[in-house]
């Protein structure tokens, strides 16, 4: 039986790695992948705690998060495609039309 704490710590590390990727990478696609990684880390936390307390609500949460992640990827990749079509770049430093 692995203590729930180990899962939570692993999830924290993976979430931070995802946040690091969002902060330092410039490729919009890789930033998206890092966001997905962060969502997954939260899912792991929810499943671990659902197991800890023997309550299924955590797993239902994970379901909803998965639906949101799928929607987010569909919309996000469509936006990336639109940006590439307009500007021929996926470098987030060059996508600064709204930057004051």
């Amino acid at each position: 039986m692995v203590p729930t704490h180990y899962y939570l710590i692993l999830a924290a590390i993976i979430f931070s790695m995802g946040a690091l990727g969002v902060l330092v990478r410039r490729n919009a696609l890789i930033i998206f992948m890092c966001v997905e990684m962060m969502l997954n880390a939260v899912n792991l936390t929810l499943v671990a705690l659902a197991n800890q307390w023997g309550n299924l609500s955590g797993q239902v949460f994970v379901f909803i998060v998965m639906a949101v992640a799928a929607a987010e990827v569909a919309i996000g990749l469509a936006i990336v495609m639109a940006i590439v079509r307009h500007k021929d770049t996926i470098n987030v430093e060059e996508i600064n039309l709204l930057k004051w």
Binding site: A67, A71, E72, A74, I75, A78
Partner: peptide, 16 residues
């Protein structure tokens, strides 16, 4: 969530 997915599908089609 089902409404969200429907909206996402429409948004993806419109954007792409």
């Amino acid at each position: 969530a089902s409404i969200l997915l429907l909206t996402a599908m429409l948004g993806g089609i419109v954007l792409a």
